[in-house]
């Protein structure tokens, strides 16, 4: 190497300079790409704010706490869609998280190697199904099934109980908040499963085998070794699923019943933010009406942002406690 530098110093220097320049250009280029995302996000936020402004000015804080959504009198409030969005997402998480966990655990801890790949691919394929297909399937297959077989049973059994009985009352329409939540649960399943499985696989075999060697049961290994090791990844997977559940539009629109009402029963129709926008945007004629729909979009943006921030904070808190 030293010989080379002595032999042709000028050429080497110029080459080094060229490499340096290339590196700089590369930095600018990739930095530009990253900046583009920020600009795009900023642009979207600004245009949504601009569009939502007339509604926000007109209704103020009342927009958040009013249940009325009346295009005829132009009185708009977002409480029912906010409520529906949160409730369907919670149901989706109640269904998706335990199922996704179970599948991921089975695949990484107990599954015979022959089945591992086909099962994994099947779960990933679920993620590839377009949401409109889930919607149509939900409307034509799942909803009639729930209407004739599941909901009458729920009404007769759980509906009779004190406290939680109120959640399962009313006529069995088949479609409604519960059905939408179930569909969402199926839709978020592949996200949660795929990510938790991948992070479970990153646990060093040494750790796992040591625990088994000490005589731990599978559950003990998972709870005390695998989960603490993969916490960040698991929370990330759940958040990705929750993000999808909060924003999912088409499948929900088909099966939620689309009523701007808040009902105590999960069997009753409701609406979500994205379903309301999808339903009404095309034929919304008044300026205040359109603006209110855009304001709903802004709210969804804020909710999603809030959920992601909360997840980050929770994760940091957990990490700190573990460090202490």
């Amino acid at each position: 190497m030293a010989d080379l530098i002595i032999a042709e110093p000028a050429a080497t220097l110029s080459r080094a300079g060229r490499y340096q320049r290339q590196d700089r250009y590369f930095q600018w280029l990739t930095g530009g790409f990253a900046l583009f995302v920020l600009l795009l996000l900023g642009g979207i936020v600004l245009s949504i704010l601009d569009g939502a402004w007339p509604a926000l000015r007109q209704f103020g804080f009342g927009f958040l706490v009013t249940e009325t959504w009346n295009p005829v009198t132009e009185k708009f409030g977002a409480l029912a869609p906010i409520f529906g969005t949160l409730v369907t997402s919670i149901i989706a998480m109640l269904v998706g998280v335990p199922l996704g966990f179970g599948i991921a655990l089975f695949l990484t801890e107990r599954c015979p190697p022959v089945l591992k790949r086909p099962l994994g691919i099947a779960v990933e394929l679920l993620a590839g199904i377009p949401s409109i297909i889930y919607g149509i399937w939900g409307l034509f297959v799942l909803a009639p099934f729930l209407q004739h077989h599941v909901q009458p049973f729920l009404i007769d059994t759980l509906g009779e109980l004190p406290w939680i009985g109120a959640l399962f009352q009313g006529p069995p329409y088949g479609i409604g908040v519960l059905t939408a939540g179930l569909i969402l649960g199926i839709m978020v399943l592949p996200f949660i499963t795929a990510i938790t499985r991948d992070v479970f696989d990153t646990v060093p075999p040494l750790l796992r085998e040591s625990a088994y060697g000490l005589g731990c049961t599978t559950w003990e290994v998972v709870w005390n070794v695998v989960l603490p090791y993969t916490r960040a990844g698991v929370v990330g997977g759940i958040m990705l699923g929750l993000g999808r559940a909060l924003g999912e539009t088409m499948a929900v629109t088909f099966v939620i019943g689309n009523a701007h009402r808040i009902s105590g029963s999960l069997l009753a129709p409701g609406t979500t933010i994205s379903a309301a926008i999808a339903n009404e945007f095309t034929e919304a004629t008044g300026d205040l009406y359109t603006s209110s729909l855009i304001a709903l979009g802004l709210l969804l943006f804020v909710i999603t942002f809030g959920v992601l921030t909360a997840a980050r904070l929770m994760l940091r808190h957990l990490e700190r406690r573990r460090g202490a």
Binding site: W69, P71, G257, N258, H260, E283, T285
Partner: peptide, 15 residues
């Protein structure tokens, strides 16, 4: 009232 979308007091909405 009358409009392309209204607030229905009862029932279930289908798309």
């Amino acid at each position: 009232g009358a409009a392309a979308s209204v607030q229905w007091p009862t029932g279930i909405g289908a798309k």
